[in-house]
Design a protein around this nucleic acid. Structure first.
Lengths: 327, 327
DNA sequence: TTGTACGCGTTATCAA
DNA sequence: TTGATAACGCGTACAA
């Protein structure tokens, strides 16, 4: 069932049928005729052919490191909400935390496979930047601020500073469990904010015991264990993610250290787990879904207008003070 | 840059260029010529035009109720792993738990928008079944067993029976917090398995206090509260999902009821939250990622072979006995 | 307001 | 082994 058959059945040219579906420039008489045939047959134009003709795909590629992360799934949700409203579909490229895969997908999308890309990366290598510049469709980066690209990102610096100040108020000896600083957002910016807070209170960086974990509960547990065993005097622990903090809580609970009396700690992300763990976790809430919506809107704006004005949107945050801190 | 230009530059017909990319039936001489031009220009055939010509999309639509669920995201991951290996892309249709949206997407995919559909539904109405039969591309249902369709589903019945038997061994008064039985899997089957276990031990159904919650921690909390207040004698609580169980634990912890000494309970799903909550939750582990892989393989099989043999795959499970139960 | 004719970028058929 | 030609299904100048 194609446009030719419909035209024949309705007794018009296929151009008229096309107009019926598009600009609508059709006489009432023919409109009725076409409408009847369309209803009888259940005909719908082939999106494929339309897209080939119009040189669009109505597809947005979204590249993510993994799906089992609240941040990611909320952002993807937000993106989907906006895009589905305007007839775009989302095609998912899950890199399983594999940087090579990320490049592969970027490569695959490079031509005209999609009308735009939302990239939810964590680490941006030179290869990324090069490839991103070569890509012929608009790219919006979400979760990180990358110079020279349109971004929607979280205010990690100020959020970290603000939550660190809670720890500092009643703390004496500080521990910091971070993530790789190759991740500018969760790694570098949060650490910077933490140090900024220390400086603000006249505390020297050298008095902080640092370590680095992966983005998992298990890794948080391990690193907390190591840190506390080698520095039992720590009374305040800044964790760069909720998962790390959960792992730390697990370790502290096991060893009988009282939270927050003996050790207070904070997380980042306001995950569901952080809300049910005992004690409840002081953390930073980000508006991930809204971030996704913003990123989608930004991308649409670029696609519609036809030029990438490299806008950067910094999202707000909210510190959630719960019972894992003393203040 | 299209196939015509490449042909011209290489001094061959565009048919030859096409063959170069497809069956490869090209003389060495011309092959070299084409290869050089292709490398110089970075030309890649338009997937859009290829698909229009071949009447395929290389796209699989996957309809999900929400993304922020470990079960869902694991299954989507599994699907993606298999499909990306064979050159298919996944396009995501998130219904935000809205049944109407589910039908809308089914409708949208109905024609030739995608080469196949994986449907991760919870409730199947008559409208679903009708629409699913009308759809012209293969459909695989995941998470539920629906007669007349290819399915990959969990063994909810036996899993429920087995985990219930743990409760029964040391329990006297039973509570059951279920979900709507419109959901055949998580609602009806788990309840059935629970009753089966009761019967096996000669316990009468009437001695069980039942209630129904939504799929959330909050709802689990509310329902547990109501149930325990009206029936304080309950010492064993079967929860149809981990989230519900987490909510129940929260309530029990708040009221100072000891778990499992005073009240033992079980969940379903083996979520990350269930693993960190105190006490750790006795639950059922499902192989969601593998289920996704199986569903993808099944769908591919149907697409390749061209006929839907309505195969059903029942996945295994594993009961994880932790410290929320007495045995 | 309508229809003709062409093009979007491929692949398949067929004859050479 | 190659190339001309006809599809795939649609949108849109342009002319009428």
């Amino acid at each position: 069932m194609n446009i030719n058959e419909i035209a024949k059945m309705a007794g018009v040219s296929r151009a008229t049928v096309s107009r019926y579906f598009n600009d609508g420039y059709v006489s009432d008489e023919k409109r009725k005729a076409i409408q009847k045939v369309v209803e009888d047959t259940g005909y719908e134009p082939s999106v494929q052919a339309q897209n080939l003709r119009k040189q669009v795909t109505k597809l947005i590629g979204i590249i993510i490191p993994k799906l089992q992360s609240e941040a990611v799934s909320h952002m993807v949700d937000g993106i989907g909400i906006i895009l589905s409203k305007v007839g775009y579909r989302v095609i998912l490229a899950n890199t399983q935390n594999n940087e090579k895969e990320e490049l592969k997908y970027l490569q695959a999308f490079k031509k005209n496979q999609v009308d735009g890309i939302i990239l939810m990366g964590t680490i941006f290598s030179k290869a990324h930047l090069r490839l991103m510049k070569e890509v012929e469709v608009p790219v919006v980066v979400i979760g990180q601020q990358i110079d020279g690209f349109s971004c929607v990102y979280q205010d990690d610096f100020h959020a970290a500073k603000e939550i660190a100040e809670i720890l500092i108020e009643k703390g004496e000896k500080f521990g910091y469990i971070g993530v790789t600083t190759k991740d500018k957002a969760a790694g570098a910016q949060r650490k910077k904010g933490f140090y900024e807070a220390l400086r603000g209170k006249g505390i020297h960086e050298d008095s902080v015991f640092m370590t680095e974990a992966k983005f998992s509960i298990e890794s948080g547990y391990e690193q907390a264990k190591e840190l506390i065993i080698s520095h039992p005097e720590i009374d305040s622990l800044f964790c760069a993610t909720d998962n790390i903090a959960i792992g730390a809580i697990k370790y502290l609970n096991e060893t009988g250290k009282k939270i927050p009396e003996q050790v207070q700690l904070t997380g980042f992300g306001d995950t569901a787990v952080g809300q049910v763990v005992t004690p409840s976790l002081t953390t930073v809430h980000y508006f991930y879904e809204t971030s996704g919506e913003e990123a989608a809107r930004l991308l649409l704006e670029i696609i519609m207008s036809g030029d990438d004005f490299k806008k950067s949107i910094k999202m707000g945050y909210q510190v959630k003070e719960k019972s894992s801190t003393k203040r």
